[in-house]
């Protein structure tokens, strides 16, 4: 929801970033305030996922210019783990599989590391077990999930649930969910949307990166940004999503081209 005079959580201005010498982001702008949900949409290859990775600090991407600030602090020189400790969370489009590392021990280590950075007490395995039960049930996950190897042999839906479970325990100030809806059936989509809606509050913000309008039926965004050619070319409210769904992206791109001409 849009709250008057809310704190600015994310401020990105004229961000330029490249991978292997190819520029992907070419002057990306976005401002996200506490309490808001933003959706970033756009055709394949427009730079949506790149933006989410640059925000989280993926080492393959090089920032060539612009500013990237989280609560007024520049993120440019921070490693990904430092960004995570500040409260930035990236929900992966393709979560990696790690055989042999149990999901439970991974989650607890992540939780304790981030808690420690916030000056809070760490939890021992038994305490953590109690803590995580309510989070599991929020996402309709069974406790046996914790015993399995991290994402190893998980179905597409299980992987995405596991991402939101991590979001639930890490309680980020800014969550960027990269194509969380891709590959989900309608039931899984509902569960995940319900999870995100429950976790979202007045003091944090969510950025959804998505290709389809479908997810936005369940998580209602305050702003929609259409991205093409590495920058935001149109921003609107949720009605824009419906228009995109019925008319496609082409008209927005055309509109933008004629503006440029």
């Amino acid at each position: 929801m849009i709250i008057k005079n809310a704190e600015t959580i994310l401020s990105v201005h004229n961000l330029v970033a490249s991978i292997d010498g190819t520029q992907i982001l070419k002057g990306f702008d976005i401002t996200v305030k506490a309490g808001e949900i933003h959706a970033i949409m756009g055709p394949n290859g427009s730079g949506k996922s790149t933006f989410s990775k640059v925000l989280a600090g993926h080492p393959s991407y090089k920032v060539d210019g612009g500013t990237l600030e989280f609560k007024g602090q520049s993120l440019m020189d921070l490693e990904p783990d430092e960004r995570a400790k500040l409260g930035i969370f990236l929900g992966f489009q393709y979560p990696v599989e790690v055989p042999g590392v149990t999901n439970g021990s991974f989650l607890r280590l992540a939780y304790n590391t981030v808690q420690g950075a916030r000056g809070k007490d760490e939890l021992d395995p038994l305490e953590f077990d109690d803590f995580i039960q309510s989070k599991l049930s929020l996402l309709g996950m069974d406790a046996s999930f914790l015993e399995r190897s991290l994402n190893d042999g998980f179905s597409g839906g299980e992987k995405k649930r596991n991402e939101i479970l991590q979001m639930a325990i890490l309680e980020p100030t800014l969550a960027i969910l990269d194509e969380t809806d891709s590959g989900l059936d309608i039931d899984a989509l509902r569960v995940i949307a319900n999870g995100v809606n429950t976790l979202h509050g007045d003091s944090d913000a969510v950025v959804l990166v998505t290709h389809y309008q479908r997810l936005l039926n369940y998580i209602e965004p305050d702003f929609i940004h259409v991205v093409d050619g590495g920058r935001v070319i149109k921003t609107g409210d949720k009605s824009l999503a419906h228009e995109l769904e019925s008319r496609g992206y082409e008209w927005v791109l055309d509109e933008n081209r004629s503006k440029a001409a």
Partner: peptide, 29 residues
């Protein structure tokens, strides 16, 4: 590789701890 490490880092876990966790998981059996 980078992707595995980045996943751990993005959850706040440092790279040394990440490698040790991945290796220990690998040899657990």
């Amino acid at each position: 590789g980078e992707e595995q490490l980045f996943y751990f880092l993005s959850r706040g876990i440092g790279s040394e701890e990440a490698v040790s966790m991945i290796i220990n998981g690998f040899v657990r059996d």
